[in-house]
C-alpha cells in the first residue's frame, strides 16, 4: 500500500514515516497541501494520506477539499493528524471528507487503531 505524509515539519514526517514503513506502507512525503496534490498526480494510486491541518501555502483542510473534488482520488483514505482539537474543526474536517482524525501527540498504537477503523489494516 502507498501512503502520503503531508506535514510542514520534516521531524513529524520522519516520525509518521517510520510508523507507516513498519506497517508495510510505501511512503511519500509533501511539505504542504499544494505539493501533496502535485505528488499525488505524479505517484498515481495512493491508499492513504496523513494530513496536518496547519501548513503554509495550502493547509490541510484546503487539501482535503481539493482531493475530494477529484473523482480519481475517491479511494484515497484521508486521516487528519493535527493539534487542531476543537470539536468544530473536527466536525468540519469530517464533513469535508476526512475518514479519521488523530490528535498530536500520538503513539503508534493510535495510528494503528485509526488505520484499522478505516479498513487499511486488519482488525485482527
Amino acid at each position: 500500500m502507498r501512503a502520503m505524509i503531508i506535514d510542514d515539519s520534516r521531524a513529524m514526517r520522519a516520525v509518521l514515516g517510520r510508523i507507516l514503513i513498519e506497517l508495510g506502507f510505501e511512503v511519500f512525503e509533501a511539505g504542504n497541501g499544494r505539493e501533496a496534490l502535485e505528488r499525488l498526480h505524479e505517484v498515481g494510486c495512493t491508499d492513504l494520506a496523513l494530513v496536518d491541518w496547519n501548513m503554509p501555502e495550502m493547509n490541510g483542510f484546503e487539501f482535503v477539499q481539493a482531493v475530494r473534488a477529484e473523482r480519481e482520488f475517491d479511494p484515497l483514505r484521508l486521516v487528519m493528524v493535527t493539534t487542531e482539537t476543537e470539536m468544530t474543526r473536527v466536525v468540519k474536517a469530517l464533513g469535508a471528507g476526512v475518514d479519521a482524525y488523530i490528535m498530536k501527540p500520538f503513539a503508534k498504537a493510535a495510528v494503528v487503531e485509526q488505520l484499522k477503523q478505516i479498513g487499511l489494516l486488519s482488525a485482527a
Binding site: S9, R10, P105
Partner: peptide
Amino acid sequence: QAEDALRELANVTGGNLMEVLPGPCELSM
C-alpha cells in the same frame, strides 16, 4: 533539524494548551 523539531514541539504544545483557553482560536505557524 533541531529547529524543525522545536517548532513542532511548540506547535503541539500550543495546540494542546488551546483546549484550556477560551475558544474558538486559531494557531499560527
